[in-house]
Design a protein around this nucleic acid. Structure first.
Length: 157
DNA sequence: AGCAGGTTTAGCG
DNA sequence: CGCTAAACCTGCT
């Protein structure tokens, strides 16, 4: 199988974002902290959608993704996470409750393995008191949330 | 079987 | 508010 890779630049977090596709399906999103200037490359729908998202012109994603490599528990967590609306927030324990378990720590673990941040909005899950953690770094999480809040006000959502 | 994890809650200073 | 400790489950060794 031939994986293809797109690159976009995300202004709100000052990072490049790498999107990896397996055929038509998005399988991974990664943040790149690069000093040198990279060439943007957008060939698939998710890349365009993500680009619009970071420009504040898009609040939801219609593109498909493939997380079949993950366990059924992780998929359940991520699917539930994908239902959280733009600019909304939940806590780890609430999310656990909504899939019928009390295992909030297991939820945190599943989110940590999320191969597709932003599109699966794991950044909208925070700790009950405080921001919680983030695989790519809490600073990114914070800035993404700020970006959503700002966009929401600008568009009167 | 043992351990750590993107937590939470309670208990005590 | 600060710190410690126990507890929920999953995933990796």
């Amino acid at each position: 199988m031939t994986d293809s890779v797109d690159i976009i630049y995300a202004n709100p977090i000052d990072r490049y974002v790498e999107l990896v596709y397996n055929g038509a399906d998005l399988i991974s999103v990664r943040f790149i902290n690069s000093k040198e200037r990279l060439t943007e490359k957008k060939t698939r729908q998710a890349s365009f959608e993500l680009d619009e998202y970071f420009k504040g012109e898009r609040t939801d994603f219609s593109c498909g993704f493939d997380i079949s490599v993950l366990s059924s528990f992780s998929r359940k967590v991520l699917f539930e996470t994908s239902k959280i609306g733009y600019g909304e927030m939940t806590t780890y324990s609430e999310l656990a409750g909504s899939i019928g378990t009390k295992a909030f720590r297991a939820v945190g673990r599943a989110l940590a393995d999320n191969p597709i941040p932003i599109i699966i909005p794991c950044h909208r899950v925070v700790a009950k008191s405080g921001i919680g953690g983030y695989s790519a770094g809490v600073d990114i999480k914070t800035r993404v949330l700020e970006h959503e809040a700002k966009t929401r006000i600008a568009n009167n959502l």
